[in-house]
């Protein structure tokens, strides 16, 4: 297991709690499922220590709209890589709600989906491989393609806008 972010392997600094687990007493950084966040919101935001939320398929990222400033991290769970709901959640969080913290893909995260995740706004990937293999995979995945048709929140320039620039340049040159 390794987490890759910003072209390096990072430490796991978060404890993920399920619906039942006791809250740790100290200032540990914790991630709770959205449902638990909604139920125990007051307690959770009153605690010391970092707070994050895990979105599972079927959750509504909009439920976090008013609390995004309080969250350092949101993890999006892909129970199977074929379940693509997390891609929409990421775009809604980044492009609509303006979430600036870490957006981490967890679960069935495989090399061949990482570029799509990145384009939708993820910036961290938890892979099942060891550190070196994970880093190699993420690096390879992110540079596999260089042409993009869709404008998405990752800011990569689209073919359409490059074409438009070129047309404008040709026009001003003539």
């Amino acid at each position: 297991m390794a987490i890759v972010k910003n072209d390096s392997v990072i430490d796991q600094e978060w404890i993920t709690l399920d619906a039942e687990a006791d809250l740790p007493p100290g200032e540990e950084n914790i991630i709770v499922p959205l449902a638990r966040f909604k139920e125990e919101r007051e307690t959770l935001i009153g605690r010391n220590g970092g707070l994050g939320v895990q979105l599972n398929p079927g959750d509504a990222p909009e439920d976090l709209a008013n609390d995004l400033d309080r969250l350092s991290i949101i993890t999006v769970h892909f129970p199977a890589y074929t379940d693509g709901r997390g891609y929409s959640y990421a775009r809604v969080l980044r492009e609509r709600l303006g979430f600036k913290g870490e957006l981490r893909a967890i679960g069935d995260v495989l090399r061949d989906q990482i570029l799509y995740m990145h384009r939708c706004g993820f910036d961290a990937y938890e892979l099942k491989n060891d550190d070196d293999v994970s880093l190699t995979k993420v690096r390879a995945a992110l540079k596999e393609m260089t042409v993009y048709y869709q404008p998405t929140g990752d800011g990569r320039v689209t073919a359409a806008s490059l074409r438009e620039r070129r047309r404008a340049a040709l026009k001003s040159a003539s």
Binding site: G84, Y87, L115, Y116, R119, Y149, Q150
Partner: peptide
Amino acid sequence: RQWSTFHPEFTYLP
């Protein structure tokens, strides 16, 4: 065609 080719959000639809 262009919009739908490698659409990052819609490559793993139901």
